[in-house]
Each structure stands twice: as C-alpha cells, then as structure tokens.
C-alpha cells in the first residue's frame, strides 16, 4: 500500500469491507472512485455520510452514455474531516430513467435532481419538486440527452440573418479547381466537419 495515500486507501478498504460489490479505487491524491450497482446507492450514500464523514455533497452529475443506453449518475462527496473526495458512480437505464432521491441526505440534491429531470428526463422518486427549473415551456426531448441536436433545433426554430450566403468552402473551391473527387467514405474525415 502506498504510504502517501494512507487515508485514501483506508477509506477504500472500509468501503470494500462494507459493500463487497463496490469497485473502489484510488484515482489520485485526495480522490477515490467508487462504482456501485444502482440499488446500492441509497444505502451507500447514507453510510458514506454517516459513517465515513462524507458530509458535503460537492457535486452531483449525470453523463449520457447513449451508446450503452445508460445514464451515469455521479455523486461527488467530500469529507472535510478526511479531506478526500469520493466520486461515486452508478449507471441506470436510459430508456426507463428512474432513480430515487437523496434529498433527505443533502438538501441541495433536490436542485440537482430537478435539473436532471429537466435536462435528461430522469425521474427521481421521492422528490416532489420535479418542476420546471431552468427551461420554460420546453416541448422537445430533454435537451442534455446526446440525441438532442442543438444545430438542428436552432435551424428549425430560428432563422439566419441573410447576407452571408456567399460563403465558400475552401476544400470545395480547391477540388473544383483541381477536379479532385472526394469519395463518400472519405468525406467524414474532412476537418471542415468539426461543427
């Protein structure tokens, strides 16, 4: 065991002893990552807060892993006593996006859950305030889902001010001069497609 990370490793040990299925590892100094089954999250968070002194919910995040058809919920807990941040992660189903609230543990979780309800369409049972938060009269799919296309939305809902139609594509201008024909399979490798 690395003697530089005594606190971190001790916490990891404690976590593993209590939650056998938890994947806990050291990320770097002051950071540990804990991966858990989603049904173990409520007991784990309660345990982390009450027994491991992770009393500060520093951050609560959600990542859309659309290719796995999952949302990743990331609770970032901080222990003022241990000076360690625990990044607690779990994955939930993206189609039937439902989870339980943790607002009874940290009141600010309510705000995060409201945001994820609005931005990702996740329903947090037990949170009775999943009302409109940032958006107003939103009628499309939850916008932070990766399949929501901002460019398309903006094209459909806003108009472009005229006056810039004469813009040219550099690659096209050069191929036009040289007669080069870019095959279809190569087109997606054109850097111009950054946006």
């Amino acid at each position: 065991m690395d003697k530089d990370f005594i606190n971190e490793n001790k916490t990891i040990e404690e976590i593993k002893n209590t939650f056998h299925s938890a994947e806990a590892k050291l990320q770097r100094k002051n950071r540990i990552i804990v991966k858990l089954r989603s049904d173990l999250i409520p007991p784990f968070l309660s345990y982390a807060k009450n027994y491991l002194s992770f009393d500060h919910l520093a951050h609560f995040s959600c990542v859309d892993w659309i290719e796995d058809n999952q949302f990743e919920l990331v609770y970032i807990l901080y222990s003022y006593e241990k000076n360690i941040i625990a990044i607690v992660k779990t994955r939930i189903d993206r189609e039937k996006a439902e989870f339980v609230t943790v607002k009874h543990l940290w009141r600010q979780a309510e705000t995060f859950e409201r945001e994820f309800h609005e931005m990702y369409g996740i329903n947090f049972t037990g949170n009775n305030r999943l009302t409109e938060f940032i958006l107003e009269d939103w009628d499309d799919i939850p916008p932070m889902r990766r399949d929501f296309d901002t460019m398309q939305y903006s094209k459909e809902n806003f108009y472009t001010r005229p006056g810039r139609e004469d813009a040219q594509d550099v690659r096209e201008v050069i191929t036009k001069k040289s007669g080069e024909k870019i095959p279809d399979f190569a087109k997606e490798f054109s850097v111009r497609k950054l946006k």
Binding site: I174, S178, I182, A186, K187, F189
Partner: peptide, 24 residues
C-alpha cells in the same frame, strides 16, 4: 499538426485526398 485545409491537394498531380487521409 495538419489544419486540414486541402491547399496542398492542388499541387499534387494526382490530387490525392491529403487532408482526409491525414485526418484519418
């Protein structure tokens, strides 16, 4: 390092798809 502009392709006698294969 390539910026992918494709200026180079004009000087290539074959006009190879240089920015594309470099990007790949």
């Amino acid at each position: 390092r390539c910026v992918g502009c494709g200026i180079c392709t004009d000087n290539c006698p074959v006009h190879m798809h240089i920015p594309e294969y470099i990007n790949a």
